[in-house]
Structures are given as structure tokens and as C-alpha cells.
Design a protein around this nucleic acid. Sequence first.
DNA 1: CGCTTTAAGTTGCGAATCACTACCTAATCG
DNA 2: CGATTAGGTAGTGATTCGCAACTTAAAGCG
Lengths: 159, 159
Amino acid sequence: MGKLTEPLGDIGDDECGLPCALQAMGERWSFMILRASFNGLKHFEEMQSNLGIARNILANRLGRLVESEILERQPCADDRRKIEYKLTKKGEALLPAMIALRQWGEQWGIGVPSNPVLCDERDRQPVQAIRVHAHDGRPLDWHDLLWVDQSEVVAEAAE
Amino acid sequence: MGKLTEPLGDIGDDECGLPCALQAMGERWSFMILRASFNGLKHFEEMQSNLGIARNILANRLGRLVESEILERQPCADDRRKIEYKLTKKGEALLPAMIALRQWGEQWGIGVPSNPVLCDERDRQPVQAIRVHAHDGRPLDWHDLLWVDQSEVVAEAAE
DNA sequence: CGCTTTAAGTTGCGAATCACTACCTAATCG
DNA sequence: CGATTAGGTAGTGATTCGCAACTTAAAGCG
């Protein structure tokens, strides 16, 4: 069979970032734990009671997220019983993916934008829907996308 | 509500779109199958050999994606043995979330942009990194975000 | 100090899910 | 007709999930 253009890369190999991302985030609770982190939850008990996740699964996922350097694990200074889990830069970088998923769930699952609404703190206006944008800012859909070999991209860019 | 196929358990509150999205996409293979669909794979055997997924799991996930109206299942016109699985609008709407995850994997997992590169077909330039944008287009980070009650948002928007 | 509480896990166990192989069914080809 | 192909289902073990109970270690307190 002929090689068709593959908008998301090859399966199973390491050329695509998606399997790599799923390695860290592909499990059921990972996104919910990450959302809790984005919402400011820092401690084990806090997350456990908030998410209703089993304790061993939470421990396991937190360990994996720390191992993936998405969360950072550090004992609390004031109360050394407590452990603080905080987002790393790598973890923060998952925000667009999270928001995109959330917006999709709002639009196609729930049907209406959920409350409360995610806003820019500067003017308290809702954020834009997350989209794929061309380098010049045009919003793109699936059918506008194309896979280009890196060498050709560089050549194009240098013109 | 009866027990429809809900192997994901109850993941959380309904005021957030993320649990809702995870209900449909929270399993490990779902994203890979969806990527295959975006890549133009339409048939069972095609996906099975390409993904290397167990046949029963693939059948199960395809069924669930169809049930979630992310994929559409229709018999092929020319060869009635074949079934075509194609993306619905709802499925296509997952593209930004997928690209965002992929880009994250590229940047933080692999370390370098993978080859080939996802480009705009108009000018063959790489697409922008997916980000959260304010309504006026400013790119936003985690710390720029704020949860605002819907009523307040409307009030602000009307000013 | 000794007792209690709290935070963050770990362990055991039954249920559910995963993945691998083999088998089945219906339509099409020759 | 028999052979082939697409799209599954069935059986089987390994793994993971989730609940509850237990452990450890650090505070809090009289």
C-alpha cells in the first residue's frame, strides 16, 4: 500500500510526539490529577478527597507524573509531614492540551459552556477556543494540514 | 440511566468538560485510533496491522468511539464486506487537542520537533504551537488565567 | 514525655481490563 | 462451488483498578 500523507506521524515509532505524550498522560486519572494541580491542589489528601480516586492509584500516578517530570515532589517546609506536588515547566506546558480537551468536552459532550468560565485575568473575558493556527495566524482545520519533510520545510522557510 | 457501555467509571463532576472528554477519550488506545483516523485509515484490518492493537480491543474501542459519535460506521459502497470508519464533525473537533498533545510530546518527550512536520498546505509552513489565547489574541499562560462565574462574564462582556 | 491526630503512603484481595491467539461469519472473487 | 478477505467474537492468562485496612512518620497537645 502506498504511503499516504500521515498528519499525525507513524504509529509505534518515536517520530511522533503523541505516543510519547500518551506514555505519560495516557492513563485515566492522569488528566484529572493534572487538572487538580492546575487548580492549585498540592497535597495527597487534598487530591484524594477531591477526586475520589483510590489511594494506591493516586500514589502510583503521582509517582509516575513525578518520574515524568510533570510534577515536582517536595516536602513542605512548615509541616514536614506534608508533601507538595507542584507543576514543573513541563507540566505547565500541558495546559493547552488540557484546555483543548476541556473545551471539546464542553462543546460536544455537555453541549453548553460549563460554569465557571476560563478567562483572561486581565480583562476577565473568556479565552478563545483553542485551534490550530498557521504561522501567519490563519485558523486551520484538518483538511488544511499537510505533512512536510523537515528538509523541505527549512528550504521553504529560507526562501 | 441503565448501564450502557461505561467502562471508564465515573470520573467526576459535570461542571467541567474535561471529565466529559475523558469519558470518551480517556483510554490509552483511543487517541492512537483517532490519530489513525486523522491519518486516513478507515478500515479495521488497516488499523489493526498499523497500530498493532489486539483485535478485540480495537473492536471495542471502535464501538465506543462510534457510540460517542466521534467516528461514523458505514458499509463501503464498492465492497460490501468492508466497513468504513470516518471522523464525524465531533471527531474532527478533537484535532486541536490531539495536536497539542503531540506537540507537547515532541517538545518535552523527544526533545526536538519530529519529522515530518505538520504544515499548512497553503504555504507549507509549520503550524504554530498550540496555545491558549485571550479573546484579543494575546497568548496566555497558566498564571494569566482566572475562573469567572458565567453571570459575571456576561456582565463584563456587556459593558 | 506519652497519647492522639494527621499526612502520605503500602498491602491484600476481588473485579475489571488488557493483549495474544484462535476461531467464526458474511460477502465477494474466481 | 470453494477460497479469500473484512470484520469481528471467544478463550485465556497477565496486568491493572479500586476499595478497605494497615503502616510510618511527623506534628499537636496536656
